[in-house]
Design a protein around this nucleic acid. Structure first.
Lengths: 240, 240
DNA sequence: TGGTAAATGTCTGGAACCAGACCATTGACG
DNA sequence: CGTCAATGGTCTGGTTCCAGACATTTACCA
């Protein structure tokens, strides 16, 4: 037998690192991702801390960091909370290059990962026995994206993609999709939202939902694949 | 627009929980997974601690727990270390039911996740431009499984599956596959290794490698899908 | 036979993190 | 116009976790 079957992936890190930094990162991504729309507020500290599995103290430190960086505005009293004041800026020339450079050689990693999990989610959803409510949620997200203005587009696009993952009912898969999306948000936000691209995406989105609706896993997968490949190709192009 | 697009997956836990318990779990799974064969030793404490991203103290506590449970044997001095003494027992009647009950309603979640990431990995690998060394590694793992005795089978089967993920070069995807495998190990170990099943699996493994070799992503995906679906169906059957 | 390298074993001080109790503020609503 | 519930703000004591220095053990090897 061949001796060195070192499966080093079994010894990968148990924890990501510092709880505070992780939390800042998570919240920041939740904001950029649009899980909380500008003007809305984060859940109450006690709730959020328990959902994130950290103490309120640590969460508060993270929120303060976001406050000092101008992402949220904290108000006290009843109906108070941490309100999102961040509005994703229109991408400027050079943003994309910078974001890609930040990601470094992990770009390919992320793109591969995203392709695998999002295609998998779509296929799983199209194989499942969807409740009418679930289907309605999906249609609603699709309508939201189609009705979005330029400032809302990325946010609602993300919500649509993540809805597919969440509706599979697999929290592991949904988590993986969210993770993939988080890692690529900065890149997506750096791509200008052009009319032509939106229209193209809308057709593809429709194809995805249609495949899911008629329970055609292979078509669902193919549709997602084509949808993501456009972005992937664009980004990989900047590596040359 | 439809107001409540609560993407609660964005607020999922930042950290898994207790570092000590997480570490015990991880090491235990690494052993059951066969990342370290019986008789072999874990990496030195300092190495391992840094790889796992925890302190040596915490790692030592975890190792001591494994020692007291009889999984490893620790020897001091040069050429010492934590040696694996655990030999996966032949599954007994009722093990599988117990393992499934332990997993509870997360079974579907795990199966869906596993299907998505392993299919994704195979497809990605079949789309990639494999180096001769990579291909050779894959062939070697395949040969290892085919040459395995009953006691080694699960371990080498795991090594084969994880090799596919690792060779994609995407650490995220490899990590996800390892994670999926970890979560399902107890189930797999509870399934008796029958001659008939081994032969069947060997044919499917060959189909997977063959598809990768001739760079046919769709065939690779389909082969993995069929391979995993057998297990999934078997397990789901126990839910009824 | 003794030196040495590589490993585990032990200790200390400090940083990070937590749980929970309590305080302060605020806007809605009766 | 006062009450109150929901929220952020603060404090205390304790636990977990860490980094690093130092001690001990052991097998190879000159």
């Amino acid at each position: 037998m061949s001796p060195p079957e070192k499966v080093d992936v079994a010894f990968r890190p148990v924890r990501a690192g510092n709880a505070f930094e992780e939390t800042v990162e998570r919240l920041l991504q939740a904001i950029k991702l649009g899980a909380v729309a500008p003007g809305d507020r984060l859940p109450p500290e006690r709730d959020l801390a328990s959902r994130l599995g950290i103490s309120r103290v640590t969460l508060r430190e993270a929120i303060r960091a976001l406050q000092e960086s101008g992402y949220v505005e904290v108000r006290r009293g009843r109906y108070g909370g941490a309100f999102v004041v961040y509005q994703a800026p229109r991408p400027a020339r050079g943003d994309l290059e910078r974001a890609i450079a930040d990601l470094g050689d992990r770009l390919g990693d992320v793109l591969t990962f995203r392709m695998a999990v999002e295609c998998g989610a779509a296929e799983a959803l199209a194989s499942a026995d969807l409740s009418p409510e679930a289907l309605e949620t999906l249609e609603r997200r699709l309508a939201d994206v189609n009705a979005a203005g330029p400032d809302d587009y990325r946010r609602l696009d993300t919500a649509f993609h993540l809805a597919i993952a969440e509706l599979t009912g697999s929290t592991l898969l949904a988590g993986a999709c969210a993770d993939a999306r988080l890692r690529i948000t900065d890149l997506l936000n750096a791509i200008p939202v052009l009319r032509r691209n939106i229209d193209h995406a809308a057709v593809q989105h429709e194809a995805i939902v249609s495949a899911i609706r008629r329970r055609d896993p292979r078509a669902a997968r193919r549709a997602v694949r084509e949808h993501l490949e456009g972005t992937a190709a664009l980004l990989r192009g900047f590596l040359a």
